[in-house]
Design a protein around this nucleic acid. Structure first.
Lengths: 209, 209
DNA sequence: TGTTTTGCCGAATGACCGGTAGGTAAATTC
DNA sequence: GAATTTACCTACCGGTCATTCGGCAAAACA
């Protein structure tokens, strides 16, 4: 009469007894496929069948590994979080923002996933709402903290660290949107670098940005 | 055997002959309801039944006025375009951006609609894709043109008009996202004003923004 | 009054969706 | 080889969706 979880918690990945071992590789494949599918169609627009097809599985075979669509998304986000947190910690200097923008240029799917989920999270009781809200708080906090460490309570441009953090975060999101619509016409690292320079009150650079 | 359009083109709104007059008022009610519904749930997430319910109509009664869901969205966007174009023309001066941000604060549904559709438009063959793409082009062009008229080919901050236009557009979009998630923590007009000042190379303002 | 045009609905259709139940095969331990 | 645990499938279900068809009532004109 003990409570049995249909899908054991991820932390219990290793051997558990005498039965068949868990297909951790398949699990990762599924998460990859789910990320790709969610990034392409959004959460609402994606279907479990489409994710299953990507890994050569039936829809029900997929549901054996994850109890439902929502759990699948959460698992995808949880796995992304490991990388994301490390990236956020890398923002010890404002200059690192340019590097982040540049790296994002090389992985459009991740950018698409975040952009789509951020918008979808606005609709009532979306599974990603809390995730996005929390993410915004962390990013802005981290950024404001870094700016304050570099410039004190007011940047040379006159902006407070909080204001600059909100503006930089907004610019990143907005530029990603424009970039996704037309990658060739938007140079994200360049523009992010320009904005940080301007916010830090750097003198005009005669060399064309 | 002449080709009959199930729903006559909008330009033929007035009387057309001897029959019953067109219900132009209902049409507007439907467009209002559709805007509200799309703004709340997005295009994919919205259902025709929900829109119909808002105007006290059956789903089939609604489809009598518009041939389909996609046509409904297009009609909503077409009606919004009249206002939008006027707003864009109002951007003869950069200072007007702050006013636009302030006005947007008073109509969250419109902001939501644009934000949601902009993200959804990234999804393959979404009916709003072309609309969003075109809108980006217009907004940035208009903004760059204004900036160039005010400052020539390079702003005092060192940014080119095109760069500044992309950054301002991005900041608007990104700030709207943050504002929709947490209206109290984001002062859109203030931040937009700050960014325009900084981009124009204004000296630091000792008064807190 | 008759004709025409429109407004609106009831019923039905077919596609797709996420999710459940039950069964079989595979892989591992003892 | 028996026991056990997992992997995966077929079949099925209830729900929602957009869309179509056919009909009836209302409102205008002749």
């Amino acid at each position: 009469m003990s409570e049995q979880e249909p899908t054991p918690p991820p932390e219990a990945l290793g051997r558990r007894g005498r039965g068949r071992p868990r297909a951790t590789r398949r699990r990762d494949q599924i998460l990859d496929a789910a990320l790709a599918e969610f990034a392409e169609s959004g959460f609402q627009g994606a279907s479990l069948a489409a994710v299953a097809r990507r890994v050569g599985l039936s829809q029900q075979g997929l549901l054996h590994h994850f109890p439902g669509k929502e759990a699948l998304l959460i698992a995808v986000l949880a796995r992304r979080d490991e990388v994301d947190v490390r990236e956020l910690d890398g923002l010890g200097e404002t200059a690192a923002l340019t590097g982040l923008a540049e790296r994002n240029t090389r992985r459009p799917e991740v950018v698409r996933l975040h952009t789509l989920l951020t918008a979808e999270g606005l609709t009532g009781d979306h599974p990603a709402s809390a995730y996005v809200r929390d993410r915004y708080a962390r990013v802005r906090d981290r950024l404001a903290h870094t700016l304050r460490a570099e410039h004190g309570d007011r940047l040379p441009s006159g902006a407070t660290p909080d204001q600059a953090a909100a503006l930089l975060t907004a610019a990143m999101d907005g530029l990603q949107l424009q970039w996704l619509y037309d990658p060739d016409s938007v140079d994200m690292p360049d523009l992010v670098g320009l904005l940080t320079d301007v916010l830090r009150g750097a003198p005009p650079d005669p060399a064309p940005h």
